[in-house]
Nucleic acid binder design. Structure first.
Length: 870
RNA sequence: GCCCCUGUGGCGGAACUGGUAGACGCGACCGACUCAAAAUCGGUUUCCGCAAGGAGUGCUGGUUCGAUUCCGGCCAGGGGCACCA
């Protein structure tokens, strides 16, 4: 007996069991159909899934189910990005072992994902903290080491002097450690690096080939890699001003054309000359110390007030040895970029300007706007308010006077290339990249151990393959700060694999970005216990056809994965360079915030919204107290504006949650989760259920008329529209089209002659069910069965539109007069421009609107619009 | 600070490559059904105006027969900035 209301609770678990028992979504590698690899960024097992996951996985599932219906062999796997700091924080706070905590979270979250009814191949599941996964990662690290892709060098970390531990940037708050509150220091450590910078040019130029990536992501990556064409330039130092053994400073500049505007030189606090000068100058030493107390993040460096210290060293201008500029140590110069030294031209660079104003240095303009004379430009120059000149003409610049910026750059480069100092030219052109090598060392427990042994005699020795994986020890404590691996009583003490003497394991673990840089490749054959990848599986499934995840990964994760794929190819673990052919970055899930009168945040589950005098008012259910409705923000625990997917699925069902997630906002933008919205989605579910119920009761009568019934036309138009929008992941538009079709169908069912067109209506209803099946798969299976569909709708082919059913014989064209719409005309579909113009001239309504004005021109845009210019 | 993105009714948004601004949904209001409520169904809903008509896509200037769409300047909000994932 059919219930008048759809019982999602019963139906959803029933269909999930049918899919699971039938192994419907397990992928066979020998499937001969064309492949399609859909992947959503795998989650960090933080405890419970959040609405952002629901959105991400709902989108991926729609793509996967649509491609399956279109006849592809679909690979749609899921796993866990399971190493990372939160597990260690939990270990410290809750006294549970990171592994216990992580695997418990995975179990919970897997259950939650299963309740969403996703078409995932769970047989391929793995967690990156499984030794059976990180074993292969260690193997590849060693192959990279052998292949020259790994370097060991020093870099700076945030050091908490109280907790005696390295802090992540997010653990540094206003320059202080988040737990201890101590002022953070920069400290140099010798660390492992992957040589991503060897691939700078390739990673940059290959962006052009990523046609199915968002333009903005490609732009962000291009800026990140940051190619610049500049000049290395050696400046002689004035004898007696510099520490012994320093007679020059080499700087890097992209604006050698502004050399005549130089007023100072600045070097990084870590520049060798700064260190040397600091040794004899306590005040400078103190300033260098101050620079080191800044945190290591770029944002911290650049937002800090620009400060410098005059070292007393003087450099001779390369174009005029009589001209000397002071050398400063400055807190905004990075040792990692270029040579760690610059010359400052305050008139044409904002940072240099700020610096010059702070230290009262000369500001001389050398590029002027092309429509001024030299004299005018000099007269108009105002030190307090210098003009910004994007591209102009050189002046006050000796031999470069009158040249364009580009000409001057060329001329000055040529000149210095030709001049020698010692055995080297004074200047050399140099392409520089902002991209730095990828430091992967982390002084933490919960990560993949770096499989290297340090031996006093042999140096750094790779762990032999037969000894992999280097497993994390289980017996560790988190009761004190620092790296538990380092203070473990036995773990790090091993014999050197080469000479057999006592040696020490590397106690650093890998950055978790390493784990996520190849998981997509492992998914192609996670069953291979001996090798990280199986080449035939890589060849079959990669690249990922559609990758979906958050925009916050636009740079690091995606760039590292692109590099890692190249590195794997170089070391024989893959055979391609670009892992993701199509990328889609989805927006966040946001929600209103609520606070009580003492300013405490109140979760949405505890409140009630009412309309009072046309205004939305919130009250706390338990206390009845009124609340302030705050701004809409990213769901976060701190503001308590989170809704739990479990609650939503329990009260509305997975289909309803999925449908609402996809319905309103375009997928790349933020979506506002609202109770009203999800209720609306629930009403639509029930409406569909009623439509199907009415349709199956209709007699199976074919339409008498020759012309196809209006519902058939509407259904076939919907097939075209929905398919097109699914291809482009415009789910919100798909849903609008399905709403349209459902409106047409419910009106058709309400009409008196519905019974005489029973077959046409049934067929159209069937099409509607197929169209929403990727989004609401459980409801679709239920309706499909009732409508007499064969087998599972999950296995059914996508409906094919009959193009002849959707052609129109005439069209309505709007007619504008001077760009304002004044009338509509109906023209035959095949009418040419001349015919349309004739109809316009003959139309009485248009003649009236013209009111006797002369027609100067008629613009006819075929099938679009007519504009009359008067 | 630097890089990137976004801005359209009461709200989420639609508008294919410059061609009818507001599809579709939410909310609200009116009506039908009901003893009543829920559910459902029908209608109205950008603003000003009784209407004719006019204005209108963050602000401002420009290009065009025509601009939400292209260009310049500004304002606001968001993402990233290399040890959060």
């Amino acid at each position: 007996m059919r219930s008048s209301r759809y019982n999602f609770r019963e139906a959803e678990t029933r269909w999930q069991k049918v899919w699971e028992d039938g192994k419907v979504f397990e992928t066979r590698t020998d499937d001969p159909r064309p492949k399609y690899y859909v992947l959503e960024m795998f989650p960090y097992p933080s405890g419970r899934i959040h609405m952002g996951h629901v959105r991400n996985y709902a989108m991926g599932d729609v793509v996967a189910r649509y491609r399956r219906a279109k006849g592809h062999a679909v690979l749609h796997p899921m796993g866990w990005d399971a190493f990372g700091m939160p597990a260690e924080n939990a270990a410290m706070e809750k006294k549970s072992h990171p592994a216990t905590w992580t695997y418990a979270n995975i179990a919970t979250m897997k259950g939650q994902l299963k309740s969403m009814g996703l078409s995932l191949d769970w047989a391929r599941e793995f967690a990156t903290c499984d030794p059976s996964y990180y074993k292969h990662q260690q193997r590849m690290f060693l192959d990279f080491l052998k292949g020259g892709l790994v370097a060991r060098k020093t870099s700076k970390v945030n050091w908490d002097p109280v907790d005696q531990t390295v802090l992540a940037n997010e653990q540094v708050i206003d320059g202080r450690g988040w737990r201890s509150g101590a002022l953070v220091e920069q400290r140099e450590l010798t660390q492992w690096f992957l040589k991503i910078s060897d691939y700078s040019e390739d990673l940059l130029s290959a962006l052009d080939g990523l046609g199915r990536w968002p333009e903005k992501v490609r732009l962000m990556q291009a800026n990140w890699i940051g190619r610049s064409d500049g000049l290395m330039l050696r400046w002689q130092l004035t004898a007696g001003t510099a520490p012994a053994s320093f007679d020059e400073i080499e700087i890097y500049t992209t604006r050698p054309d502004t050399l005549y505007g130089a007023s100072f030189m600045a070097v990084a606090a870590d520049h060798p000359i700064a260190r040397a000068a600091g040794e004899k100058n306590p005040a400078l030493q103190a300033f260098i110390g101050e620079c080191r107390q800044m945190g290591t993040s770029q944002a911290a460096l650049e937002t800090a007030e620009k400060k410098g210290f005059d070292t007393g060293i003087r450099a001779k201008h390369p174009l005029d040895p009589a001209w000397e500029v002071p050398v400063y140590v400055a807190n905004f110069i990075l040792m990692d970029y270029g040579t760690g030294a610059i010359f400052g031209c305050p008139a044409h660079d904002q940072r240099d300007y700020d610096f010059a104003m702070a230290y009262d240095l000369p500001i001389k303009p050398v590029v002027r706007s092309a429509n001024l004379t030299d004299a005018e430009a000099n007269a108009a120059f105002d030190r307090e308010n210098p003009p910004t000149v994007e591209d102009g003409v050189l002046f006050n610049s000796g031999f470069m006077n009158g040249m364009s910026v580009a000409e001057a750059k060329e001329a000055v480069a040529k000149r210095f290339e030709g001049e020698s100092l010692g055995n080297r030219p004074v200047g050399q052109r140099k392409v520089n990249f902002r991209l730095r090598d990828w430091g992967i060392s982390r002084q933490r427990y919960w990560g993949c151990p770096i499989p290297v042994i340090h031996c006093e005699a042999c140096g750094t020795v790779p762990v032999p393959n037969r000894d992999l994986p280097v497993k994390l020890p289980d017996d560790v404590t988190f009761d004190m700060p620092g790296n538990p691996l380092d203070r473990h009583p036995t773990w790090k003490h091993v014999d050197c694999p080469q000479c057999g003497r006592k040696a020490r394991r590397e106690t650093d673990t890998m950055d978790t970005f390493v784990d996520s840089s190849w998981y997509f490749a492992r998914f192609t054959d996670p069953f291979n216990a001996d090798e990280p990848t199986t080449m035939s599986a890589i060849a079959k499934w990669l690249p990922v056809d559609q990758y979906i995840g958050g925009i916050e990964h636009a740079i690091l994760h995606l760039l590292y994965s692109r590099f890692f794929t190249r590195a794997m190819t170089k070391t024989g673990h893959a055979n391609l360079s670009e892992p993701f052919a199509g990328l889609f970055t989805q927006g966040m899930v946001v929600h209103e915030t609520y606070r009580d009168d003492s300013g405490n945040w109140v979760p949405p589950a505890d409140i009630r919204i009412e309309m009072i005098d046309g205004e939305r008012r919130a009250t706390e259910i338990a206390s009845g107290k009124p609340l302030t409705i705050g701004s809409i923000e990213k769901m976060s625990k701190s503001k308590k504006n989170v809704v739990d997917p479990d609650d939503i699925i329990a009260s509305y069902g997975a289909d309803c949650a999925r449908w609402f997630m996809l319905s309103d906002s375009p997928p790349e933008r933020d979506v506002i989760w609202s109770e009203e919205g999800v209720q609306g989605a629930g009403r639509f579910l029930q409406k569909v259920w009623r439509i199907v119920g009415e349709a199956i009761d209709l007699p199976d009568a074919a339409s008498a008329a020759d012309a196809p019934h209006a519902v058939t036309k509407a259904a076939h138009k919907a097939i075209i529209a929905v398919s097109e929008d699914l291809e482009r992941l415009r789910f919100n538009r798909c849903i609008a089209h399905i709403h349209d079709l459902s409106n047409t169908l419910s009106s058709a069912l309400g009409e008196k002659d519905a019974a005489t067109h029973g077959r046409a209506i049934r067929e159209a209803v069937c099409i509607m069910v197929q169209l929403f099946a990727p989004m609401m798969p459980h409801l679709a299976e239920e309706c499909w069965g009732e409508l007499g569909g064969k087998g599972l709708i999950a296995d059914a082919a996508w409906p094919v539109a009959n193009a002849s059913l959707v052609v129109e014989s005439s069209l309505t064209l709007p007619v504008q007069i001077n760009g304002k719409k004044r009338a509509d005309i109906i023209v035959p579909a095949e009418a040419d421009n001349a015919a349309v113009e004739a109809i316009v001239r003959a139309d009485s309504a248009i003649a009236a609107a013209l009111a006797g004005q002369d027609i100067r021109k008629i613009i006819v845009v075929p099938k679009r619009i007519v504009n009359i210019v008067v």
